[in-house]
Design a protein around this nucleic acid. Sequence first.
DNA 1: GAGCTACGTTTTTTT
DNA 2: AACGTAGCTC
Length: 721
Amino acid sequence: MDVSYILDQLNDAQRDAVTADSPGTLVLAGAGSGKTRVLVHRIAWKIKVEGLSPYSIMAVTFTNKAAREMRGRIEELLGSSLQGGMWVGTFHGLAHRLLKAHAREAGLPENFQILDSDDQLRLMKRIHRELQLDDSRWPPRQSCYFINGHKDEGRRSAHIDDPGGDLYLQTMLKVYRRYEEICQQQGVIDFAELLLRALELWRDNPAVLAHYQQRFKHVLVDEFQDTNAVQYAWLRILAGNGMPITAVGDDDQSIYGWRGARIENIQQFSKDFADTRIIRLEQNYRSTGTILSAANAVIKNNSQRLGKELWTSGEDGEPITLFAAFNEQDEARFVTDRIDELLRQDYRRADIGILYRSNAQSRVLEEALIRSGQPYRIYGGQRFYDRLEIKNALAYLRLIALRDDDTAMERVINTPTRGIGNRTVEMLREYARDHQLSLWQSAMAMIQNGALTARAGNALRGFLSLVEDLAEQCSDQSLDEQVDLVIDKAGLIAFHQKEKGEKGQARIENLQELVSAARSFTPEDPDADLLREFLDQAALDAGEQQADEHEDSIQLMTLHSAKGLEFPIVFMVGVEENLFPHKMSMDDPARLEEERRLAYVGITRAEQQLFLSYAESRRLHGQENFNSLSRFIREIPNDLINEVRINNTVTRPSSFASGNIAAQAAADCGIALGQRVLHSFFGAGTVLSFEGQGASARVQVNFEDEGSKWLVLQYANLELL
DNA sequence: GAGCTACGTTTTTTT
DNA sequence: AACGTAGCTC
């Protein structure tokens, strides 16, 4: 059998990583070194050469996107479909699959539901109300953090030491206990619980564990640096006894410490898995020499590193451009102006990525892109399935699937408003608590025994029969017809039609989008209950931004969601102290290093050209902020950077920083920043900045009538005003 | 009980 | 700036 196609076109280190037959294999893969490729080819190697069945392979990733991509590329390489045989998925997805198969052993009801972060927060608010905690002193969100943090470390409330006189811990513990109680009673589990239960399932049920230890002959883990304590323990319990395991990761790209990821796991790996072979992939196929030098220069300021230096056999390429903007508007204009230029060259919009630290920054950029008529696509941000209107529709579906789902019931009992007010709901809650019933059961009971006023009782009865009727009508319908039925008959469409502005229209469109998502939904397990599968997927998967995926558009996203992606052109905006590094992370050295890794991730997304920008004044949360250039950018050697400034004080003296030279050239013509000038064709304007050197020195002028333009200084014939 | 207004709070990153 | 909550009026 000819298997050369698996190894052709790989470099030595990659080939090593693909064929290694050590029990443990740790691949330290730098950015752009062909990490996914190695994983995919290694799996193909296991199947085609070593003869493993896809059924006996488990491959774990962190995002659904990565899982999909891996599956697709394996199938492409093998030329056949994997179908359901191989376990490819996220930690959360696989844990969920496991718990569904062994619900009873895991101590869960067969029809347990997933509680997403929004549901979790709502539940927490309810608990705080019940425990009579003042929300301003005890923010519900903080309780969520507390609980999730402990769960990520594998600690349940019972594992936490007696807090003694510590009021904070006492309170948190009380909340944690009550939270566990309610979740168990309602049969719902949050994200962290998914992982923890899966771990406990294997730990406490040797027979179940043995089954999987027999089944799997090889485990592969992507983005290993992002595993948290529970995920690591889960892998260890499965593969710690000699099952071959391959971990691929990059300690320099660990950016999820804030949600429990433990970079130490990567160092721990060779201790816990016997005979581990470590293979480094350091040749980068993505970026120019200049970009790599910058990335290396930044990351070398971190202390805790396994050590790795990227190199390329390619060209140095263009210098990095750094733009100092007046404010965030000016910054956005810089980005769109450059994009216009790039598109006039041979670039497509999809070649351009705009990366920012926090989602709040996207607005200004979006507005500027709309103004300049550029289609764009935002990754991440609010997930499709997290939108209010979608969650409402899903809540109805959940009630249809399971009447006792209190979270769903709370959500839509009075949405759209139907005369069931706070008072009534409060009585329901009380009754449910006293009688250990679900809200649904309590509602039925209270109607029965006439504990409600006629008005409230009628309204409540109306709601119950609405849901029952819907369930009835849905029973023999296809999934998309069910969704369609629900959003129509529950009055959600009408509800949003009444909303003023364009918002309601957008929401209706999203609801229709949900119908088509249901139409094209294909369950992993064709025998399972379709509606439930759909609801599960909605909780675990962000829901791909379906809008115009194939249109050529500019890509906007946070630095976090950019990990794993690459673009010929990258704009990293808002490289300012307090924003990046974020001010929440500046006091803690460990978190500061994580921010630096984030900078490293951002820089290494760029293939050919990298544009950095910062604003001297930035309006954020309605307040003006004055920040200086990010320390991370100051760590990049000056000779890699072409600096464009808006005022005369060039604070980065460098023999190569051509901002100086351009300014010098301009000064020779008598032009200074802020200078009013007159152009024979464009009219009057103000000089904004300079760039380039010698004959290509250019000047940016903001014309009163024409907007801002770049002009080659030599030919512009500007008249001073 | 619904709906409006005023006020206060909050803002990192996400499976 | 945007959202959520509290309190007020109908």
